[in-house]
Amino acid sequence: MIELRVVYVISAREFKKFLREKSRLFSSLARPLIWLFLVGGGLSRIVPTGGNITYLQFFFPGIIGMTILFTSIFSAISIIWDKEFGYMKEILVAPVSRTSVVVGKAVSGSIVSTIQATIVLMLFPLVGLKLSLLSVLLIIPLSFAISFSIASIGILIATFYESFESFSIIMNFIVMPMFFLSGAMYPLRKLPEIFKLIAHFNPLTYGIDALKNVIIKEAGEMGADFSLPLDLTIIFLVSLVFIFLGTKAFNRRV
């Protein structure tokens, strides 16, 4: 059973902290900007994209996906961090269901992640993209849905989190491969077969594909690989399955 008051408290707290900590906002925006302009800017000179978009434009949905990936995963991992060192204990000793805590954590992470994704999105004129107001308004709830699916995965990962060392393991073996094999930097259809296969099992692939469906609609073979309804269905199913597994694992551990 999900208690809305718990989701509200966890989210309100996260949101207030986000607004108060300006440095956190800046540092979390630095990563996507560095990747977009330093990596993307360089690659765009040597990568022929064909069709009617530049590499930087192709990379743009991927960068939004990256912002969502990092913010959502790390805010989810803080569920364990918080438990050892702070506020989570206050929540766990309150008469609230563990399911509400997990859902609350996923929602709060998704809110922050959506705000950051939206800020990055507003840079679209810089890479020469044209987006209608409707597209922008569509991307915001879409970002929230993607964030929620990634945060659900993050919570499951967090339950395996044992020590500080696991942090770099999570970074190197889960987060970075998830990013590289998501179609963020290369169109899926151009990947070697084995990578293409793995990418099909990567939930982030469908999130970024959904963004491509909206942001770079007419990119031909550089564009989306799947249809938007398929992307949305998978994002929805991933959220459902992982929030369920995450709750089970969290219940067992805590």
Binding site: R13, K16, K17, M88, E90
Partner: peptide, 11 residues
Amino acid sequence: VFQDTTLDKDL
């Protein structure tokens, strides 16, 4: 009241 503080310092 736990041994380590569980207040949220940013609130």
